[in-house]
């Protein structure tokens, strides 16, 4: 119980390192989820609204990739950006860029697949209404997204929850470098292995709070749809 008290004290003290670790986590996750949304939302729509040969196969692959283990993504990107890899000359290993690339790959299938699912459940009257009122081209798609913003946002939040809580990619590609690539999850992992539970527990509590917040927001968004 003493550890728990210490953990709360740490959170309330506003310890600069703790704050920095949280901000780093949020920054990485936010950038990777924004990038994955920019690619995944149009892709999700495209896979539902346009028919092309091999579409089903693409969907099967994307759905399988949702379960991608974080360490496999870490390993894959590591092999690309390591000194000896094809992108080695860029010197990306153990930088925020490497973490963001890994998280992007991790979460893109999740956002794409969930958006595809939400588009599939779209009210059939929506596209009909848009067309009969004369919407076409980019305006048509803009309206589809606008009308479905709640369910699309909930797909994005689900992806955000996945990246903020993952440890494999951040550890393997970020290297847990203090004041640089150290995130909530890599810190918890490190502190626990050192046998120092206070900071780890404090970060764990913060992570749980973020999870609750995400769930709460998702519920509200879907309810107001």
């Amino acid at each position: 119980m003493n550890v728990l008290t210490e953990a709360f004290k740490l959170i309330l003290s506003g310890d600069p390192e703790l704050v920095e670790i949280c901000l780093t986590s949020l920054r990485f996750s936010a950038i990777s989820i924004v990038l994955a949304s920019l690619a995944g939302i149009p892709l999700g729509f495209f896979l539902k609204l346009r028919d092309f040969p091999g579409r089903k196969m693409v969907l099967v692959v994307i759905n399988s990739l949702m379960a991608l283990p974080t360490v496999v993504v870490g390993l894959f990107v590591y092999s690309l950006v390591a000194r000896s890899g094809p992108l080695g000359s860029l010197g990306l290993l153990f930088t925020p860029v490497a973490v963001i690339i890994g998280q992007f790959i991790l979460v893109l299938p999740i956002v794409t697949s969930m958006v595809h699912g939400r588009v599939s459940e779209m009210d059939p009257r929506l596209p009909e209404t848009l067309r009969t009122l004369g919407a076409s081209g980019p305006r048509y798609y803009f309206m589809l997204v606008r009308e479905m913003k709640g369910s699309i946002a909930s797909a994005v939040l689900a992806g955000f929850g996945r990246v903020i809580g993952e440890v494999g990619v951040s550890m393997m590609l970020g290297g847990n470098i203090r004041w640089y690539t150290r995130t909530i999850t890599t810190t918890i992992s490190l502190e626990t292995s050192k046998g120092e539970f206070e900071l780890g527990l404090a970060l764990g509590i913060i992570l749980m709070m973020i999870a609750f917040l995400l769930n709460f927001l998702t519920h509200r968004l879907v309810r107001y749809e």
């Binding site: 009257r125 209404t129 009122l133 004369g134 076409s136 305006r139 309206m143 009308e147 749809e225």
Partner: peptide, 28 residues
Amino acid sequence: ERSVLVQQEPYLFQGSVKQNLLYPLKFR
């Protein structure tokens, strides 16, 4: 000649009545 269909259970866009009425103008 154009025709507009009002469905049996119409789909109204999110937002106010006014916003709904402005969309056909925006689309055109």
